[in-house]
């Protein structure tokens, strides 16, 4: 019995010590982790817009987030958009409930600041307040709209689609006319040396400058990537302007050159990007019509 007490005591003490060490480590690192994650996403987004350390973003550049929900109410499906709005200088959100044909059904002002809306929990509470129910609200996706002054500069769409093995997570940046500005592969589990090459510049930069019309019929071709095009794709901003223009003119309208030995991965990315843009272009046009129709002071 004595031994039993001894063991229990020592084990408890060890556990307490361990908890103390882990707890301290957590407290010290948690803030840095959140901060770094935030910075990381921010830099990726800025670099997709074409800004870097050498070419810093102007002060007027602002990023606003648009959140999309699916709302099920009494057997009917609606789309809910949380749209950033400005009212006498104060920025908040407004919920637009649209039916599937794109007609506005309901407009609810929401009392939530853009910073608070970035937190999942805060946003869920705000949605609950706005719709007075918890049932049937499903978060779908987020679109970031970059504005320079009161001009729309670009859209940033985070997205996810199936790859050769599992899912591929990307962020896509689009011009206001839906031409592709850039593509960034965030996460994937393709085979190293084969499908994993999708995250290389010479593959993902092929999507740059493809217009919406071209994108609709974009395909994958199994041809070797020409050397000069590869050199351009690896560092598109470092090449001098005339040469780069000549290369864009020659190859800009081509299909996507598949990666050697990974045609399926290449095709997955191409099809995934194509679907993302097509769907988004349709939705944002519907939303634009509603906003213009109702004269909503939207910040997108």
């Amino acid at each position: 019995m004595n031994e039993f007490v001894k063991i229990t005591f020592r084990l408890t003490l060890s556990c307490l010590m361990a908890a103390l060490v882990m707890g301290t480590a957590f407290i010290f690192t948690d803030k840095a982790k959140k901060h770094n994650e935030h910075v990381n996403v921010q830099t990726t987004m800025l670099s997709l817009l074409g800004y870097s350390d050498l070419n810093p973003a102007p002060k007027e550049l602002k990023l606003y987030s648009l959140y999309r929900y699916i709302i099920e109410e009494k057997g009917t499906t609606y789309l809910g958009y949380m749209v950033p709005v400005t009212e006498s200088g104060k920025e908040s959100y407004e919920l637009l409930k649209l039916n599937l044909e794109g007609k506005l059904m309901q407009r609810v002002p929401m009392n939530i600041s853009p910073d608070a809306a970035a937190e999942d929990a805060e946003r869920a509470t705000a949605m609950k307040e706005a719709l007075k129910t918890e049932q049937g609200i499903a978060y779908q996706d987020r679109t970031v709209v970059a504005r320079l002054g009161d001009q729309r500069l670009a859209y940033l769409l985070p997205g996810k689609f199936g790859g050769f093995k599992t899912f591929i997570n990307v962020i896509l940046s689009l011009n206001p006319d839906f031409a592709i500005r850039g593509l960034e592969i965030m996460e994937h589990e393709e085979d190293p040396g084969l499908g994993a090459e999708i995250s290389q510049n010479y593959f993902k930069n092929q999507f740059r400058n493809k217009s919406f019309e071209r994108l609709k019929s974009l395909d994958v071709i199994k041809e070797p990537l020409p050397d000069e095009y590869r050199a351009y794709l690896n560092a598109p901003d470092k090449m001098d302007k005339d040469k780069a223009d000549a290369i864009i003119k020659q190859y800009g309208e081509k299909d996507i050159y598949a990666l050697t030995g990974s045609t399926i991965s290449s095709r997955s990315v191409t099809d995934g990007v194509k679907n993302m843009v097509k769907r988004f272009a349709y939705r944002i046009q519907v939303l634009n019509d509603v906003i213009a129709d109702q004269k909503i002071p939207a910040l997108i």
Binding site: A18, M22, A25, T29, K33, N40
Partner: peptide
């Protein structure tokens, strides 16, 4: 006790790496 010790230090280094070299 060994397992607990190792797990504790693994958690610590895991948190540190995740925070500073994401």
């Amino acid at each position: 006790t060994y397992t607990l010790t190792i797990a504790t230090w693994v958690t610590v280094i895991d948190l540190v790496l995740a925070a500073y070299v994401p």
